[in-house]
Write a protein that binds this DNA or RNA. Structure first.
Lengths: 178, 178
DNA sequence: CGTCCGCTTGACTCAGATCAAACTTGGTGG
DNA sequence: CCACCAAGTTTGATCTGAGTCAAGCGGACG
């Protein structure tokens, strides 16, 4: 289902573009002409505040779209920057909209994709709302269905919003039968 | 736009149903026959684990849909329970799908609604990933554009994943010019 | 063989959770 | 009008989970 969607999208007119680390993919206020499908690296969607700080709204890694909401808005509401060197596929927004309007199968696949994103973002939020590392790891395992394989621990620590050291300790604790 | 969608949805065949606190709205595995629009109270979507614990996947408050993803799946993947007394509007899933398939305007509105949900869920996750209460409150204010009005503080504390006391202290700290 | 990176463990420190106790406020009913 | 109750707010005291800094270990890879 999701693959059908990706196939259809890949068939659309597009270009590839590479961004240097720190470079902007687009700015708030820019007209939306393309959808960004990240192929390598990491890009962030963020809103700058007057005090200089910035809130991150999305972290897009390879395989994910950068600002899904931009399909239906004329201008961007946020900035997007590359946190690493990024390679992205730029797909014509107009072509994607036409596809959405004329092909109910694609429309359903897209809505379904969005619903999945909602689910996973909410799950992440609920996990992060837990107070202890033990609970967060427990929830992560319950959600994924498996114990995180060695080699991914550092990444998992980031996902559940804790320091690598704390996660290592929690894992060690579990090994000792709690 | 969102209002158009709600109007269209309200015009669909539906029934209203009240659930007692603790009652299940549906169980994992049940066939999806209706979409739930919460009108009063709070309902949670959750996945139970073998060890007895449960992970919350969504917290639906008045005005929001309970399991958006269920529009496109035949069976529920989770349980839903009422955390308070809940009044919900049950909308025929079939009717909503037909509307989605035949009315491009509705389809767009629905996808747009989902994109918004994605945005806000991701924002919540990013806020919860911040380490200090000061940063979380700062991000919350930046996102909402206003200081939380008195009377809502306890709720805000919950939203940003902290205890009411800690939030009160942080607010007091801000009053003293940082 | 050296270097990098992920992992491991120890020691220290501190933000914030928790418990507890007052005090404000609004609403309710007598 | 007042007694009274419930909720939200304040503030204090205490305790603990986990972030941080630091030092050491082991495997992968050029």
């Amino acid at each position: 289902m999701i693959n059908i969607m990706l196939n259809q999208i890949h068939a659309l007119p597009h270009t590839r573009q590479v961004f240097r680390k720190g470079q902007y993919l687009f700015h708030q206020g820019d007209p939306v002409v393309s959808m960004f499908l990240i192929e390598a690296g990491e890009a962030r969607l963020l809103r700058r505040q007057r005090n200089g700080g910035a809130i991150v709204l999305q972290r897009a890694s390879p395989g994910s779209f950068l600002a899904e909401a931009s399909l239906f808005t004329a201008h961007y509401h946020c900035d997007a920057t590359a946190t690493t060197r990024v390679s992205a596929r730029l797909i014509s927004r107009l072509a994607m909209r036409k596809l959405f309007e004329n092909d109910p199968v694609f429309a359903e696949a897209w809505a379904s994709h969005l619903a999945d994103e909602v689910r996973s973002a909410r799950l992440r939020a609920e996990i992060l709302a837990l107070k202890t590392v033990a609970e967060r790891l427990g929830a992560w395992i319950a959600a994924k269905g498996e114990f995180p394989p060695k080699g991914t621990w550092k990444t998992v620590a980031q996902e559940i919003g804790t320091s690598p050291e704390s996660l290592y300790r929690e894992i060690a604790r579990r090994r000792l039968g709690k």
